[in-house]
Design a binder for these strands. Structure first.
Lengths: 192, 192
DNA sequence: CGAAAATTTGACATGACTCAACTGGAGTGG
DNA sequence: CCACTCCAGTTGAGTCATGTCAAATTTTCG
């Protein structure tokens, strides 16, 4: 299955599009690949694109005053990644976007997406639903971070995304969970 | 200014609508008022509506296994509130939606909103933008909860929403910040 | 006025962090 | 293909921010 079709497949899950619209969407996205460790965005730049990952894994992270990395998102194939804040406002980003593995992505620029919304109004619906779900999700993650222990959050992640443990170093997963690598190591020790 | 117009005013900030569309939107929402402490949603019910607050303040919260309340959102006038997860999936909610003051809201049901999206496609755009912003916001709150101390989060809230301190009991604010009332009290003591 | 709710205070407990050292495997270059 | 380095992961000891529990005080509101 060509990469473009994966994107269409996921859009079609939520809105039904004609083959004409499909063609318009496909032609609006650019295919890009990047090697492991390659950066697609650095602090100080404006995040020009939103990315749909067709192959591989990516992370977004920022570095605090003390030089510590904090991982914001980890996304595998068929997920979207970007710095939406910067993408949407066209202001400078504070984040890095990095390939955790060799990746292939479909990307679209902010202005091209705006134009595409006009050409294919249904896409607005797709993104409305996408952001709505992402928002709900993020509220749940917020809830868990506030009220569940690190152990519970770890267990939930194992249950819901066990695949990332095979593919992403534990240091990164720890940061994604909001804990130190040491704590994660101790949690995992107790489990086994 | 009639309540309906406030809603239109906020929608118009993001998408320009004709007076015809305006009329359609206005007629789709119902005005409802509730007294302080009144519940608009309880666990076990499906959240039928999404609410635009025109007057007053509301909160959403859930009660954990040990019987502790955890506050999810606090919203003042001109904000939206709902249990989106339940609203969107039409499954049972785990949350309470409660009026913190006497409130007036404009509410719309899930099915009515779906129909309205068809009648006024631009509204889809408005909600796409609304959820996008809400998502970005919630990610920021997540970040702060993971990586900032309670003191920093308190200071940020004072800076960005100082109005809520005049109107919402500290117990609730503490819970919203993800800390105990005792901790909040101690933080505030140090400040003064 | 009196009851209930909100806030404060104190003593103590604890989950997670910090820092430092150690282990083991992966990758690299001679 | 071995030796060396580097990075991820683990382990231990000590610390700290925040939580828990209980009681006292203040505020709110019927």
């Amino acid at each position: 299955m060509p990469h473009n079709h994966k994107l269409i497949y996921y859009i079609n899950k939520w809105v039904s599009i004609t083959s004409d619209e499909e063609a318009k969407i496909i032609s609006a996205f650019e295919l890009k690949s990047a090697a492991k460790k390659e950066l697609m965005l650095e602090p100080g730049e404006v995040c020009e694109y939103i990315y749909f990952i067709t192959k591989g894994a990516m992370r977004s992270y920022f570095v605090d005053d003390k030089g510590n990395e904090h991982i914001f998102q980890i996304r595998l194939e068929n997920g979207w990644i970007s710095d939406l804040e910067s993408f949407f406002t066209q202001r400078k980003s504070n984040y890095y976007l990095e390939a955790l593995e060799d990746v292939e992505v479909l990307r679209i620029s902010s202005s091209r997406l705006e134009a595409l919304y006009e050409e294919v109004p249904k896409l607005e619906r797709y993104f409305r639903i996408l952001f709505q779900k992402a928002y709900i999700n993020s509220l749940e993650r917020l809830n868990a971070t506030m009220w569940d222990s690190a152990i519970e959050r770890y267990n939930d992640l194992v249950k819901e995304q066990s695949d990332i443990f095979q593919r992403v170093p534990l240091v990164y997963i720890a940061s994604y969970l909001g804990i130190t690598p040491e704590s994660l190591s101790r949690i995992r020790k107790k489990k086994s």
